[in-house]
Design a protein around this nucleic acid. Structure first.
Length: 286
DNA sequence: TGTCCGGGCGATGGAAGACC
DNA sequence: GGTCTTCCATCGCCCGGACA
């Protein structure tokens, strides 16, 4: 779970207004979370191995996969699989499905490690974890399992952070632009509730980031995307939502041409003085 | 080097349980 | 039977490696 503090959001807004890259803030959060997770995880690994030293069963499996105290997403990660993969593969994330998928995955992982180690007979590696006065050595197999889990967890932390920043910055960004350019409150609208997808007549409705309201009281749809290079689906998104104003971090020349052809106003924050274009855009949108 | 496209999770809200 | 909590499906967010 990685979410942003008010301070982080403020730092990101400042970067955007300076036309600089905002990603440093996100990368820091990912790193901090990952390091903290790694330390905690290694501590738990150490304790688990010590506590089970007299038992011949697979202590990792007992403590990190078949442990009833764990949440389903922890079990999935510990087995080496992210929740999204389970959701794609089994079309559900129900707890019992996640648990059985994790068990299968863990067996698979162990088999794969055995096979690879068999090929690389000359390689050995021991991970020694020391904490306070205790110390424990992990075998090559155990070390590889731990490395795999950390890698899978990092993917989860990374994706969560990017998802979170995108979701949480769009409304503060649009609102601050409105305040900065003196847009009267009656001329913009922040929608916090998303559309109700369950209603049949609304089946094609989409969530809208922000509305500007022009002087004829017509609502203008605004879309914010902070993504970097190489994501052509922006085109689909703005078309599907009949967007009037598109605010982005980075736009390709193709993007700009398309937006112009479709009569959609755009602002590219990473461009030099990118946000100053807002003034003209507001005028043009009446 | 630019595009494609699948991977990863957060936020949300309805459904299903859990508790009085 | 009503309220509170947990579960989980859905949509939307950006990344980043494969490919041309």
């Amino acid at each position: 779970m990685s979410t942003f503090t008010t301070v982080s959001l403020k730092n990101v807004l400042n970067k955007l207004y300076e036309g600089e890259d905002y990603r440093g803030e996100v990368i820091s959060l990912i790193q901090d979370n990952f390091i903290a997770y790694s330390l905690d995880f290694l501590k738990r690994v150490m304790l688990a191995k010590i506590e089970n030293k007299d038992i011949t069963v697979d202590w990792y499996e007992k403590e990190f996969i078949q442990n009833e105290d764990l949440k389903k997403d922890e079990i999935a990660i510990n087995s080496g699989m992210n929740m999204k993969t389970i959701s794609n593969k089994y079309k559900t994330t129900k707890k019992d499905i996640v648990i059985s998928a994790s068990n299968d995955q863990y067996d698979d992982l162990k088999r794969a490690i055995d096979e690879l180690i068999d090929v690389e007979k000359d390689l050995d590696l021991t991970l020694t974890i020391k904490y306070n006065k205790a110390s424990v050595d992990l075998t090559l197999n155990e070390t590889l399992i731990v490395i795999n889990t950390l890698a899978v967890k990092r993917a989860a932390i990374r994706a969560g952070a990017w998802s979170s920043i995108g979701k949480n910055i769009e409304k503060p960004l649009m609102k601050s632009l409105c305040i900065l350019y003196g847009v009267p409150e009656k001329n913009y609208e922040i929608i916090y509730k998303k559309a109700d997808y369950s209603k049949n007549e609304d089946i094609y409705s989409r969530e809208i980031d922000f509305y500007l309201v022009d002087n004829t009281e017509k609502s203008l749809l605004c879309e914010v995307k902070l993504m970097g290079k190489g994501n052509p689906e922006v085109a689909d998104a703005v078309i599907a939502r009949k967007t009037n104003l598109f605010v982005a971090d980075t736009l390709s020349e193709t993007n700009k041409r398309q937006l112009k052809d479709w009569n959609i106003e755009w602002i590219e924050l990473r461009a030099k003085k990118g946000y100053e274009k807002v003034k003209d855009v507001l005028k043009s949108l009446n």
